[in-house]
């Protein structure tokens, strides 16, 4: 996350929204700032959150003296998407045009990958481990994968 502060506004909004989705509870502006590695000014984070709230992308609730933010999820939209799902699943074997981040793994791939990751983890310095404090999130979601929170 080198000089995240100098990114275009759209990328900053994206980073903030990603942090809110990754969290398991509503986040206050300081918490968002912290989860982004503390490279953004607190006022910048607050401005971005206010803008996202104005657009209806996030909802907020009182948390003590501050607001805590969480992504807005329309139940209806989620259901509509699920209805579309059956149609979208057709033809998994063809060459699509969407550039996916990761493709499907074979059992062999998975074994090799775990070895490679163990290798990177072993050589990780304590400093870099500290900077990726949110690994706890990933550990806790690995099994359960809870549904996204819905605003009531």
């Amino acid at each position: 996350m080198t000089d995240i502060a100098r990114r275009p506004a759209g990328e900053l909004e994206a980073a903030v929204l990603a942090a809110l989705w990754a969290a398991h509870a509503p986040l206050t502006p300081p918490q968002v700032q912290q989860s982004l590695g503390g490279t953004l000014a607190r006022t910048t984070v607050a401005t971005i959150l206010a803008r996202l709230h104005d657009k209806g992308t996030v909802v907020r609730s009182r948390s003590g003296r501050a607001y805590a933010y969480t992504p807005a999820v329309e139940d209806e939209a989620a259901l509509a998407a699920r209805r579309m799902h059956s149609e979208l699943e057709k033809g998994d074997d063809r060459n699509g045009v969407l550039a996916r981040f990761v493709s499907r793994l074979s059992p062999d791939d998975e074994r090799v990958l775990r070895l490679l990751l163990a290798q990177t983890d072993a050589s990780r310095t304590p400093a870099s481990t500290a900077s990726t404090a949110s690994t706890r999130n990933t550990a806790s979601t690995r099994k359960g994968s809870p549904e996204p929170r819905r605003p009531r």
Binding site: M84, L88, V97, L98, A99, R100, S103, L105, D109
Partner: peptide
């Protein structure tokens, strides 16, 4: 589950 038309490689990943 919301996977739109896939870009899966047929060969090993």
């Amino acid at each position: 589950t919301l996977r739109p038309a896939a870009a899966l490689a047929a060969s090993a990943g």
